[in-house]
């Protein structure tokens, strides 16, 4: 069973990866932090039923569910308020304080491309890029076969490349999947 000390070290280790995944759903720093912590708290509440070896996929699974719920709630709220306050809702400048105009535009383009991805592809590609989980763990997190993780990741990368006009790896080669 998970004890408090190991839970805290798990939080320290996974806070950034979970935050980065959740951020691609809510696009708001404070909200992403809240969702990240809520996901950890859910796992903490269920610690008596959690196997230590499956705790990491569980944290990501919980975070993805909570992030998707937040997004849905935001859409419902926007529908009932006829879009009033929608801008204030999603514009998060805390990550852009030090950014140049070029970087801001780049981030906006990435956000549009990521938001255009279907949920299933987005979950796979974000977990692959940020979580540090193995393919088997990602498959466990999403409840899909391992082969599907690979195919969805390829589809997601192709869609992102199409939207962003190609993705180069750090070494300059085209195609971002094999970086």
């Amino acid at each position: 069973m998970l004890d408090e000390a190991s839970f805290h070290s798990l939080y320290v280790r996974l806070e950034k990866p979970v935050f980065n995944v959740v951020y691609r759903w809510v696009w708001h720093t404070e909200e992403a932090r809240d969702v990240t912590q809520e996901a950890f708290l859910k796992v903490w509440d269920a610690r008596s039923r959690v196997r230590v070896e499956s705790v990491e996929p569980l944290v990501f699974q919980s975070a993805l569910n909570l992030a998707a719920n937040r997004l849905r709630a935001r859409k419902v709220r926007r529908f009932f308020t006829l879009g009033l306050g929608a801008e204030a809702d999603v514009v998060d400048e805390s990550q852009n304080l030090q950014a140049s105009l070029e970087l801001r535009e780049q981030r906006l383009a990435v956000r549009k491309a990521v938001e255009a991805l279907p949920e299933k592809l987005k979950s796979v590609v974000m977990l692959c890029e940020f979580s540090g989980l193995s393919t088997a763990q990602i498959a466990e997190t999403l409840g899909i076969p391992q082969g599907t993780v690979g195919s969805r990741r390829s589809l997601a990368m192709a869609a992102l490349e199409k939207s962003l006009g190609g993705i180069r790896s750090a070494d300059g080669s085209a195609g971002g999947i094999e970086s």
Binding site: F19, N20, T29, R33, V110, A113, F130
Partner: peptide, 14 residues
Amino acid sequence: MKKEHVFEQFEPPP
């Protein structure tokens, strides 16, 4: 666009 820009790592609040 570079891959590290597409999957830029943001820092969570302190």
